[in-house]
Simulated scan of single mutants.
Amino acid sequence: MALLKFAVVFLAGFIQLCASQSVDVEVTVSSPDDIVDGESTDVSFSIDFTPFSGAASVINGVSSGTRYTVIAGMFTSDAADVASSIGGTEVTLTSAQASTSLTDGTATTFSSLTASLDLTSEECGNDGSDYTYFCVIVSPDSSGAGWSGVDTSNNTDCAALVCKAVVDLSADTLTITNPDDGVIGVGAGQAIEFEVDLSAPASSDSVSGVSNWAMSMWLSDAASGGTVVALTSVSLTSAQLTIDVTNGSSADIDDLAVTLDLTDITCDEFSYSCVSVEPASGAAWKIQTTDASNSNTVCTAVTCGATIAQISMVFLGLCFLLTSLLMNQS
């Protein structure tokens, strides 16, 4: 009997809790895709704000000037612990948004909102893994009457938005390992194996993650600023993608391979092979070159030579000519 009584009381309390006045917030970020520290960035977003079980009446009863306050910032997790946030700012609402009336169970959208995050004096972490959420808190203005009796435990929502590391990346050396004589044949596909040495100064952030790099190779008529010939993306293995570059140190990415389509390329179009190193689309870092000595592009001199197919055709032509001469002499 006592157990049954306890169950009834517990159920009644649970029903009362479920029926309590509450609000729910959902945030959607439209731009940018990522941000970096040391800059001031505008984040465009919208929020869906839904009241339940009488919360609409309470909120609608608050004067429009103090009905809503929207605070946004960067957080280390979707728990939105204010103590671990940076760039916090109050978002300006239009007069129509500030006086919006709500209906229980119906989502009201506040669109075209902008949070100006000032991160000019902030550090998002050495490798871009610290501040990965943009969170929004919707509450009554502290100077107003408040939302008396409304449960605000769900008045915060977060969207994934990475504050990326800023890396002064330098691609220092490009070494072609095959063909080992650096002779690039035209008229067909040319397989090239190579390695790239990278570094970042001590003042830089670090490159770290599970998908760090995107790489391209091409031929050019100059070591810098020349024409781009046969540009090709380089496929990277998971081991190559996860190579890190700690600030103040260097790293080698070796065993790289690519095939350049040189079918319609002539020898007068190039004398260098070049490689650019970029962050992968999902990387937690961005490139920042501080001066001319730091560049994510590196080139090395190469020599143009005929392919085996071309040599074979020449040899075949010589054989045909020699055969013709012998037949004429006979």
Rank of each mutant, 00 (worst) to 15 (best):
S20A: 15
V27G: 05
V27H: 07
P32Q: 12
D34R: 04
V36Q: 13
F52Q: 09
A56K: 03
N60C: 10
S64K: 08
S64I: 00
Y68D: 05
A72E: 01
D78C: 06
D81F: 06
G87L: 00
T92Y: 00
T100K: 12
D104F: 09
T108F: 14
L119D: 08
E123N: 14
G125N: 07
C135M: 03
D141A: 13
D141G: 14
T156W: 00
C158F: 01
A159C: 01
A160Y: 04
A165S: 14
A165D: 02
L169F: 07
A171T: 03
L174I: 04
P179V: 00
G182I: 00
E195G: 10
V196H: 10
A214V: 03
L219K: 06
G225V: 11
G226M: 02
T227Y: 02
A230S: 15
L231W: 02
Q240D: 09
S249Q: 07
A251N: 01
D255T: 14
I265H: 04
F270W: 09
S273P: 02
S273Q: 13
A283F: 05
W285L: 00
K286D: 11
T289M: 12
T290F: 05
D291A: 13
S293C: 01
C304V: 12
A309Y: 09
S312D: 07
V314Q: 08
G317Q: 08
L322P: 01
M327G: 08
